[in-house]
Every structure is written in structure tokens, then in C-alpha cells.
């Protein structure tokens, strides 16, 4: 198990390094002169020169890459061009919104999806199963930002019970912040829950056709006991894979949803970074999100091995 985790850790570090290289090349090498991109056309030559010095663009490319990496290791992500504050401060503030949003959506979708999937599989072939499957089929097809707009319309404009957007900040109003996150979390979670419920159901149905389920029944276990003791736990293996894959979609989802609800999160930071051509902000926050995705994949791999003993030996 330790050996397995060690190998995965090496894999994690290589992927991280490769990802950072990709981001660096796209943002700093391909455009030629990042300073020109940031300032746009019709710029005074001395302004350009000043920015280049500020960004350290006069150093050779490999040095800049290494400096960027070393900086990030020390928690220094550079200074935002538009906000004139350290990017690390910006990220630190914004992550207080994005992290609860993403984890909230993940937890909510899992809580909804697993019982529904199990229930549907237990009633396989019956009307209720067909009904649940039809609803989830449509649920997958709904874009989360469309649900979000409808939720805003119903709860903020017609019923006026929840805010349509904005975020008061955790220290200003805790309950206000929770309320502000409620609709975004629901909008993100519903389509995810549809996918997860379908995966749970089909994984469970697959497992229920395995020989060892018959063995458990032959032992005398009732259908229900067999389902929980041998079915659900084994079916969680494929569900976990999907959960890991979904995380990257969830990140994309938060970017959209944060913009829609005017939430000051990482996604909005990135988006503002693009419109203001603040490459320093874009570079660091994209790197952070990519690192997060890679790390979640790593965790899923480890969890996988914890559930399935057959994987522990294999590298």
C-alpha cells in the first residue's frame, strides 16, 4: 500500500511539473512578449519597458520558469497588475468562496445521488426505476447555469427569499454568506447528482450480477443484507472513478456559476484576469486549479486502492 502511494506521489509530482510547464509555455513563450499582451496596442515604449522590468521579462526563459516555480513553492505568486496586490493575497481571499462552493456541491450531489442510485437499482425494471432514469437523463442534459438562472428567477425575483447574487463575506455575515452560496451550490450539484445517480445504479446492477452475490445469497443472506454488505461497497469503486473525473467539470462549473452569481471566487478572479489581460493572475490561478484537479485524482487513486485490495500490488 505504501509502495503504491509512493509511486502515485511520484506520478503526481511529474504531472504537476508538466502542467506548470504547459501553462508557462502557453502564457509566456507562445505570445512572444507577455508585457505587450497585457498592455495591448498603442502603448508608450517606456511603460512597456517598465512593466517588462517589473515582471522580470528581461531574464532568459528557463530562468523565468525556474523563478516562477521557486516563487510558488514559497507562496509568492507575483503581484497582480490590475489590483497591485500580491496574487497570493487575492487567491487567499477568493478561495474562501470557491472551496465551500465546490465541496458543498460535491457533498450535496453525493448525498442526493447515492441513495437514489441504490434505490433505483433495487427496483430495477419497475416503473419507479424508469421514472428516476428518465429524470436523471434530462438532468444530465441541463446546463448548470440555466438551472442557476431559473433558481434566481424563482427564489430571488418571484419569491424574494434568497439573494440573486453577491457575497457579504464570512466575517461580515455568516448566515448571509451561507444564503448566498445556497443557490449556487444547488445549481452545481443537480446535474452532477444526475450523472452520479446513474453511475451508482448501473455499477450496482453490474455488481449484483457477479457470482459472489450468488454466494452471499447461498450463505442465507437476505436480498437486502446482500445488497448492502456485498453490493454497494463493491459498486463504489466505479462510482469513485466518476467522482474524480467529475471534479474537473465541477471546477469549470464554479467558474461559470461564480460569474453568474457575482461571487468573488477564484473563477471570477480568473475571468476578470482575462478581461483585464492580467496574465499574472491568470497564470497563478489556473495553476492552482490544475494542481487541485491533479491532487484530487491522486486522492481518488489512493482511495481506490484502499477499497480494492487487488490494486495495492500493481503500480
Amino acid at each position: 500500500m505504501l509502495w503504491f502511494a509512493f509511486l502515485r506521489l511520484i506520478g503526481l509530482l511529474t504531472t504537476l511539473l508538466a502542467a506548470s510547464l504547459v501553462i508557462f509555455v502557453v502564457l509566456e513563450v507562445i505570445p512572444g512578449d507577455p508585457a505587450e499582451v497585457m498592455l495591448g496596442l498603442n502603448v508608450q515604449p517606456d511603460t512597456l519597458a517598465a512593466l517588462r522590468t517589473e515582471l522580470g521579462l528581461n531574464a532568459p526563459v528557463p530562468t523565468r520558469y525556474v523563478n516562477w516555480l521557486l516563487g510558488m513553492l514559497q507562496g509568492e505568486f507575483g503581484i497582480s497588475y490590475t489590483y497591485s496586490v500580491p496574487v497570493s493575497e487575492l487567491i487567499g481571499e477568493r478561495i474562501q468562496v470557491s472551496l465551500p462552493l465546490a465541496t458543498g456541491a460535491l457533498v450535496l450531489s453525493t448525498i442526493i445521488a447515492i441513495p437514489i442510485g441504490v434505490y433505483s437499482a433495487r427496483h430495477h425494471g419497475k416503473l419507479i426505476d424508469t421514472g428516476i432514469m428518465s429524470v436523471t437523463q434530462v438532468g444530465i442534459a441541463i446546463p448548470n447555469f440555466w438551472i442557476a438562472i431559473l433558481l434566481v428567477y424563482v427564489f430571488a425575483i418571484v419569491l424574494r427569499v434568497l439573494p440573486a447574487g453577491g457575497f457579504p463575506g464570512w466575517d461580515v455575515s455568516f448566515s448571509g454568506s451561507l444564503q448566498a452560496l445556497l443557490l449556487p451550490v444547488i445549481a452545481l450539484a443537480l446535474p452532477q447528482a444526475s450523472i452520479l445517480a446513474r453511475v451508482m445504479r448501473s455499477a450496482l446492477l453490474d455488481v449484483l450480477h457477479e457470482d459472489y452475490i450468488r454466494t452471499a445469497r447461498a450463505k442465507g443472506l437476505s436480498g437486502k443484507a446482500t445488497l448492502w454488505r456485498h453490493g454497494v461497497r463493491n459498486a463504489l469503486i466505479p462510482v469513485l472513478t466518476i467522482l474524480g473525473l467529475q471534479f474537473s467539470f465541477l471546477i469549470a462549473g464554479t467558474v461559470i456559476i461564480e460569474n453568474l452569481f457575482y461571487l468573488p471566487g477564484l473563477g471570477r478572479l480568473i475571468f476578470q484576469g482575462i478581461t483585464q489581460r492580467d496574465l499574472i493572475v491568470v497564470k497563478s490561478s489556473v495553476m492552482l486549479l490544475v494542481a487541485l484537479t491533479i491532487f484530487v485524482t491522486f486522492l481518488v487513486d489512493i482511495a481506490y486502492a484502499a477499497i480494492d485490495p487487488r490494486l495495492r500490488r500493481r503500480a
Binding site: G11, T14, T15, A18, A19, V22, I23, V26, L27, I30, P31, V37, L245, S248, F249, I251, A252, V255, I256, I270, F271, G273, I274, R277, L279, V282, V286, L289, V290, T293, I294, T297
Partner: peptide, 22 residues
Amino acid sequence: MRTNDLIFAFPSLLSAVLITSI
């Protein structure tokens, strides 16, 4: 397979962000 893992870490939205910003 490693390249695959790498690309998987870039959801299409993040790639779009990178491309658009340039």
C-alpha cells in the same frame, strides 16, 4: 498515458481561459 493524465487536468474551460487570454 502520462500525457493523457496531464490533459485530463485541464478541463476544457481552463484551456479556453488560457487560449483566450492570449
